[in-house]
Simulated assay, not measured.
Amino acid sequence: MEWGYLLAGLGVGIMVGMTGVGGGSLMTPILIFGFGIQPAIAVGTDLLFAAVTKAGGIWAYWRHGVVHWRVVWRLAAGSLPATLLTLWGLSATGVHEGHHNDLITVALGVALILTSSALLLKNWLAGIMKARQGHPLVNYLYRLRQDETIKAPATVITGGLLGIMVTLSSVGAGALGAVVLLFLYPRMRGVEIVATDIAHAVPLTAVAGLGHSAVGTVDWSLLSYLLMGSLPGIYIGSHLGVRISDKILRPLLAIILLMVGIKCLL
Rank of each mutant, 00 (worst) to 15 (best):
F49E: 03
V166R: 09
G89L: 10
I150V: 14
I236D: 03
G163Y: 06
T149L: 11
I193G: 03
G20R: 01
V202N: 06
G89R: 03
T105K: 15
P186R: 12
W220E: 08
G78A: 07
T28Y: 05
L6F: 11
I193N: 01
L184Q: 07
A199N: 05
L184C: 04
G57Q: 06
L231Y: 01
R189K: 15
A8I: 08
I37G: 01
K247E: 14
V242Q: 15
P81R: 08
S213V: 00
A51W: 06
S117M: 12
L112H: 08
G22K: 02
R187E: 14
E148A: 10
P29G: 10
A82V: 11
R187P: 00
F49Y: 15
G177V: 07
A206Q: 11
V12Y: 10
I255K: 10
H212V: 05
V215A: 10
G78H: 03
Q133F: 01
L90D: 09
L249K: 06
D219M: 03
L223P: 11
R250P: 00
G160L: 02
A178H: 03
N123V: 05
L249D: 04
I262K: 04
V72T: 12
R243Q: 10
A178V: 04
V215Q: 15
L181F: 11
D246Y: 00
V242A: 14
T93C: 00
G190M: 14
V66H: 09
A76L: 15
V191P: 00
A82M: 09
